[in-house]
Design a protein around this nucleic acid. Structure first.
Length: 271
DNA sequence: AGAGGTACCTGGCAGC
DNA sequence: TGCTGCCAGGTACCTC
Protein backbone atom coordinates (compact mmCIF):
# COMPACT_ATOMS: atom_id res chain seq x y z
CA UNK A 1 0.00 0.00 0.00
CA UNK A 2 2.15 2.63 1.36
CA UNK A 3 3.30 5.81 -0.10
CA UNK A 4 4.08 8.56 2.37
CA UNK A 5 0.42 9.53 2.97
CA UNK A 6 -0.43 5.94 3.88
CA UNK A 7 2.50 5.73 6.26
CA UNK A 8 1.50 9.00 7.90
CA UNK A 9 -2.12 7.82 8.05
CA UNK A 10 -0.90 4.65 9.71
CA UNK A 11 1.17 6.65 12.19
CA UNK A 12 -1.81 8.78 13.14
CA UNK A 13 -4.03 5.75 13.33
CA UNK A 14 -1.88 3.74 15.71
CA UNK A 15 -0.32 6.52 17.80
CA UNK A 16 -3.31 7.12 20.13
CA UNK A 17 -3.59 3.38 20.76
CA UNK A 18 0.03 2.66 21.59
CA UNK A 19 1.51 5.87 22.98
CA UNK A 20 2.08 5.45 26.72
CA UNK A 21 1.46 1.71 26.55
CA UNK A 22 4.05 -0.83 27.55
CA UNK A 23 5.02 -3.67 25.23
CA UNK A 24 4.56 -6.73 27.38
CA UNK A 25 5.63 -9.29 24.77
CA UNK A 26 6.79 -9.48 21.17
CA UNK A 27 5.71 -12.35 18.93
CA UNK A 28 7.79 -12.90 15.80
CA UNK A 29 6.19 -15.57 13.60
CA UNK A 30 8.22 -14.86 10.50
CA UNK A 31 11.62 -13.21 10.73
CA UNK A 32 12.46 -13.39 7.03
CA UNK A 33 11.47 -9.87 6.03
CA UNK A 34 13.44 -7.47 3.84
CA UNK A 35 16.14 -7.92 6.43
CA UNK A 36 15.97 -10.62 9.07
CA UNK A 37 14.16 -9.44 12.17
CA UNK A 38 16.95 -9.12 14.76
CA UNK A 39 16.94 -12.13 17.04
CA UNK A 40 17.23 -9.93 20.10
CA UNK A 41 14.41 -7.60 19.13
CA UNK A 42 11.83 -9.33 21.29
CA UNK A 43 13.92 -9.18 24.46
CA UNK A 44 15.00 -5.61 23.78
CA UNK A 45 11.51 -4.29 23.16
CA UNK A 46 9.66 -6.24 25.83
CA UNK A 47 9.01 -4.18 28.93
CA UNK A 48 9.57 -0.89 27.15
CA UNK A 49 6.94 1.85 27.20
CA UNK A 50 6.23 3.52 23.87
CA UNK A 51 6.75 7.21 24.45
CA UNK A 52 6.25 8.55 20.97
CA UNK A 53 5.33 7.40 17.48
CA UNK A 54 7.37 9.31 14.94
CA UNK A 55 8.12 9.07 11.27
CA UNK A 56 11.15 9.73 9.08
CA UNK A 57 10.54 9.25 5.37
CA UNK A 58 8.44 6.07 5.18
CA UNK A 59 9.99 4.66 8.33
CA UNK A 60 7.84 4.62 11.47
CA UNK A 61 9.73 5.22 14.70
CA UNK A 62 8.39 3.72 17.92
CA UNK A 63 10.44 5.48 20.53
CA UNK A 64 10.98 4.07 24.00
CA UNK A 65 13.32 4.99 26.83
CA UNK A 66 15.56 2.05 25.94
CA UNK A 67 15.70 2.46 22.17
CA UNK A 68 13.71 2.95 18.99
CA UNK A 69 11.94 0.44 16.79
CA UNK A 70 12.41 1.43 13.14
CA UNK A 71 9.62 -0.09 11.08
CA UNK A 72 9.09 0.00 7.32
CA UNK A 73 5.91 -1.22 5.64
CA UNK A 74 7.61 -2.07 2.35
CA UNK A 75 5.20 -2.41 -0.53
CA UNK A 76 2.45 -4.44 1.07
CA UNK A 77 2.79 -3.97 4.81
CA UNK A 78 0.15 -2.72 7.21
CA UNK A 79 -0.30 -2.22 10.94
CA UNK A 80 -3.48 -2.75 12.88
CA UNK A 81 -4.61 -2.56 16.46
CA UNK A 82 -6.26 -5.85 17.38
CA UNK A 83 -7.51 -7.68 20.43
CA UNK A 84 -4.60 -9.80 21.58
CA UNK A 85 -6.62 -13.01 21.27
CA UNK A 86 -7.25 -12.60 17.56
CA UNK A 87 -5.85 -15.57 15.66
CA UNK A 88 -2.99 -14.82 13.30
CA UNK A 89 -3.26 -15.60 9.62
CA UNK A 90 -0.63 -16.36 7.02
CA UNK A 91 1.01 -12.97 6.69
CA UNK A 92 0.71 -11.71 10.25
CA UNK A 93 4.42 -11.74 10.92
CA UNK A 94 4.90 -9.75 14.12
CA UNK A 95 2.71 -8.73 17.09
CA UNK A 96 3.64 -6.23 19.75
CA UNK A 97 1.45 -7.36 22.63
CA UNK A 98 0.48 -4.37 24.75
CA UNK A 99 -0.35 -4.16 28.43
CA UNK A 100 -4.06 -3.52 27.83
CA UNK A 101 -5.20 -6.67 26.06
CA UNK A 102 -4.55 -5.31 22.62
CA UNK A 103 -1.73 -5.78 20.17
CA UNK A 104 -0.11 -3.93 17.32
CA UNK A 105 -0.04 -6.43 14.47
CA UNK A 106 2.31 -6.16 11.48
CA UNK A 107 1.02 -7.88 8.35
CA UNK A 108 3.01 -8.00 5.13
CA UNK A 109 2.31 -10.49 2.31
CA UNK A 110 5.32 -9.56 0.19
CA UNK A 111 7.69 -9.30 3.13
CA UNK A 112 9.43 -6.19 1.80
CA UNK A 113 8.88 -4.53 5.15
CA UNK A 114 11.44 -4.45 7.92
CA UNK A 115 12.04 -3.99 11.64
CA UNK A 116 15.21 -2.66 13.20
CA UNK A 117 16.10 -1.79 16.76
CA UNK A 118 18.50 0.96 17.67
CA UNK A 119 19.63 2.31 21.00
CA UNK A 120 21.18 5.36 19.38
CA UNK A 121 19.39 8.42 18.01
CA UNK A 122 17.41 6.95 15.09
CA UNK A 123 18.51 9.66 12.67
CA UNK A 124 22.05 8.29 12.93
CA UNK A 125 20.94 4.82 11.87
CA UNK A 126 22.40 3.57 8.61
CA UNK A 127 18.96 3.51 6.96
CA UNK A 128 18.08 7.08 7.92
CA UNK A 129 21.45 8.80 7.98
CA UNK A 130 21.75 9.77 4.32
CA UNK A 131 18.13 10.56 3.52
CA UNK A 132 17.08 13.80 1.87
CA UNK A 133 14.66 16.27 3.46
CA UNK A 134 11.04 15.60 4.30
CA UNK A 135 8.82 16.82 1.44
CA UNK A 136 6.48 18.61 3.84
CA UNK A 137 9.30 20.33 5.70
CA UNK A 138 10.81 23.75 5.10
CA UNK A 139 14.08 22.29 3.77
CA UNK A 140 12.32 20.93 0.71
CA UNK A 141 12.03 23.66 -1.87
CA UNK A 142 12.52 24.54 -5.51
CA UNK A 143 16.00 25.81 -4.64
CA UNK A 144 16.86 22.45 -3.10
CA UNK A 145 15.77 20.53 -6.20
CA UNK A 146 17.37 22.99 -8.58
CA UNK A 147 20.68 23.02 -6.73
CA UNK A 148 20.98 19.25 -6.49
CA UNK A 149 19.96 18.61 -10.07
CA UNK A 150 22.48 20.71 -11.99
CA UNK A 151 24.35 18.55 -14.46
CA UNK A 152 22.19 15.50 -13.81
CA UNK A 153 20.92 13.62 -16.85
CA UNK A 154 18.54 11.37 -14.95
CA UNK A 155 14.82 11.65 -15.73
CA UNK A 156 13.18 14.11 -13.37
CA UNK A 157 10.76 11.44 -12.23
CA UNK A 158 13.59 9.23 -11.04
CA UNK A 159 15.30 12.25 -9.54
CA UNK A 160 12.38 13.15 -7.27
CA UNK A 161 11.89 9.48 -6.33
CA UNK A 162 15.52 9.27 -5.16
CA UNK A 163 15.45 9.24 -1.36
CA UNK A 164 18.79 11.03 -1.22
CA UNK A 165 17.15 13.97 -2.99
CA UNK A 166 13.84 14.05 -1.12
CA UNK A 167 12.05 11.29 0.73
CA UNK A 168 8.52 10.05 0.49
CA UNK A 169 7.68 10.55 -3.18
CA UNK A 170 6.66 7.15 -4.49
CA UNK A 171 5.68 6.03 -7.95
CA UNK A 172 2.10 7.28 -7.83
CA UNK A 173 2.69 10.74 -6.44
CA UNK A 174 5.71 11.27 -8.68
CA UNK A 175 3.42 10.99 -11.72
CA UNK A 176 0.74 13.10 -10.05
CA UNK A 177 3.06 15.91 -8.99
CA UNK A 178 4.76 16.13 -12.39
CA UNK A 179 1.36 16.35 -14.03
CA UNK A 180 0.31 19.15 -11.70
CA UNK A 181 3.54 21.02 -12.40
CA UNK A 182 3.32 20.52 -16.17
CA UNK A 183 6.70 18.79 -16.37
CA UNK A 184 7.33 15.82 -18.67
CA UNK A 185 8.48 12.92 -16.46
CA UNK A 186 11.34 11.95 -18.80
CA UNK A 187 12.90 15.42 -18.88
CA UNK A 188 16.50 15.50 -17.69
CA UNK A 189 16.53 16.73 -14.10
CA UNK A 190 19.41 19.09 -14.82
CA UNK A 191 17.52 20.94 -17.53
CA UNK A 192 14.60 22.19 -15.50
CA UNK A 193 14.44 25.81 -14.38
CA UNK A 194 14.41 27.09 -10.83
CA UNK A 195 10.94 28.46 -11.46
CA UNK A 196 9.60 25.07 -12.56
CA UNK A 197 11.21 23.39 -9.59
CA UNK A 198 9.58 25.96 -7.33
CA UNK A 199 6.22 24.95 -8.74
CA UNK A 200 7.07 21.26 -8.48
CA UNK A 201 8.01 21.58 -4.80
CA UNK A 202 4.72 23.37 -4.16
CA UNK A 203 2.56 20.75 -5.84
CA UNK A 204 4.44 17.90 -4.15
CA UNK A 205 3.50 19.39 -0.80
CA UNK A 206 -0.05 19.93 -1.98
CA UNK A 207 -0.62 16.44 -3.35
CA UNK A 208 0.87 14.76 -0.29
CA UNK A 209 -1.07 16.94 2.12
CA UNK A 210 -4.32 16.31 0.26
CA UNK A 211 -3.72 12.58 0.30
CA UNK A 212 -2.95 12.63 4.01
CA UNK A 213 -6.15 14.57 4.60
CA UNK A 214 -8.08 12.01 2.55
CA UNK A 215 -6.36 9.20 4.42
CA UNK A 216 -8.00 10.41 7.57
CA UNK A 217 -11.35 9.18 6.32
CA UNK A 218 -10.18 5.57 6.40
CA UNK A 219 -8.77 5.71 9.92
CA UNK A 220 -11.78 4.17 11.60
CA UNK A 221 -11.89 1.14 9.31
CA UNK A 222 -8.21 0.77 9.73
CA UNK A 223 -8.23 0.85 13.53
CA UNK A 224 -11.19 -1.48 13.70
CA UNK A 225 -9.33 -3.95 11.61
CA UNK A 226 -12.19 -4.18 9.18
CA UNK A 227 -10.01 -3.72 6.16
CA UNK A 228 -6.87 -2.10 4.97
CA UNK A 229 -6.64 1.61 4.46
CA UNK A 230 -8.24 2.55 1.16
CA UNK A 231 -6.27 3.90 -1.67
CA UNK A 232 -7.38 7.31 -2.78
CA UNK A 233 -7.80 6.72 -6.47
CA UNK A 234 -10.54 9.26 -6.67
CA UNK A 235 -7.96 11.98 -6.13
CA UNK A 236 -5.62 10.88 -8.89
CA UNK A 237 -5.43 12.77 -12.17
CA UNK A 238 -3.13 10.59 -14.26
CA UNK A 239 -1.96 7.51 -12.37
CA UNK A 240 -3.62 4.39 -13.75
CA UNK A 241 -5.54 6.42 -16.31
CA UNK A 242 -3.85 5.42 -19.57
CA UNK A 243 -5.96 6.36 -22.61
CA UNK A 244 -8.44 8.35 -20.53
CA UNK A 245 -8.79 12.01 -21.46
CA UNK A 246 -6.69 14.54 -19.54
CA UNK A 247 -9.06 16.45 -17.27
CA UNK A 248 -7.57 19.70 -18.51
CA UNK A 249 -7.12 19.29 -22.29
CA UNK A 250 -8.95 16.01 -23.10
CA UNK A 251 -5.89 14.55 -24.84
CA UNK A 252 -5.50 10.86 -23.84
CA UNK A 253 -3.15 10.16 -20.93
CA UNK A 254 -0.10 8.18 -21.94
CA UNK A 255 1.64 5.36 -20.09
CA UNK A 256 5.37 4.79 -20.47
CA UNK A 257 8.06 3.05 -18.43
CA UNK A 258 10.76 5.05 -16.75
CA UNK A 259 13.26 3.10 -14.71
CA UNK A 260 11.10 -0.04 -14.97
CA UNK A 261 8.16 1.72 -13.34
CA UNK A 262 4.81 2.66 -14.85
CA UNK A 263 4.63 6.36 -15.54
CA UNK A 264 1.58 8.34 -16.59
CA UNK A 265 1.48 11.80 -18.13
CA UNK A 266 -0.38 14.10 -20.45
CA UNK A 267 1.60 14.60 -23.67
CA UNK A 268 0.06 18.02 -24.21
CA UNK A 269 0.12 19.54 -20.72
CA UNK A 270 3.55 18.22 -19.72
CA UNK A 271 6.68 19.36 -21.54
C1' DA B 1 29.77 10.47 -9.04
C1' DG B 2 25.99 9.20 -11.44
C1' DA B 3 23.01 6.02 -13.87
C1' DG B 4 20.89 1.81 -14.44
C1' DG B 5 19.81 -2.80 -13.23
C1' DT B 6 18.90 -6.47 -9.68
C1' DA B 7 17.19 -8.43 -5.75
C1' DC B 8 13.97 -9.42 -2.09
C1' DC B 9 8.52 -11.87 -1.95
C1' DT B 10 3.42 -13.07 -2.66
C1' DG B 11 -0.99 -12.34 -4.81
C1' DG B 12 -3.93 -10.98 -8.43
C1' DC B 13 -5.12 -10.83 -12.96
C1' DA B 14 -5.03 -11.26 -18.15
C1' DG B 15 -4.51 -14.40 -21.63
C1' DC B 16 -4.42 -18.85 -23.40
C1' DT C 1 -10.83 -24.52 -14.50
C1' DG C 2 -6.03 -24.33 -14.54
C1' DC C 3 -1.74 -22.96 -16.01
C1' DT C 4 1.79 -19.26 -17.26
C1' DG C 5 3.60 -14.95 -17.27
C1' DC C 6 3.43 -10.46 -15.95
C1' DC C 7 2.56 -6.70 -12.91
C1' DA C 8 2.26 -4.27 -8.34
C1' DG C 9 2.31 1.54 -4.35
C1' DG C 10 9.79 0.34 -2.02
C1' DT C 11 14.48 0.83 -1.81
C1' DA C 12 19.25 -0.85 -0.68
C1' DC C 13 22.86 -2.47 -3.07
C1' DC C 14 25.58 -3.84 -6.98
C1' DT C 15 28.00 -2.92 -11.32
C1' DC C 16 29.45 -0.17 -15.09
Amino acid sequence: MPELPEVETTRRGIAPHITGRTVSRVIVRESRLRWPVPRRLASQLAGQAIEHVGRRAKYLLLETAGGTLILHLGMSGSLRIIDSGLAATRHDHVDLVLDNGRSLRFTDPRRFGSLHWTTRPPETHRLLRDLGPEPLGAAFSGEHLHGLSRGRQVAVKNFIMNSHVVVGIGNIYASEALYMAGIHPARAAGRISLKKYGLLAEVVKEVLQDAIAAGGTTLRDFVNGEGKPGYFRQHLNVYGKADEPCISCRVPIREIRIGQRSTFYCPKCQR
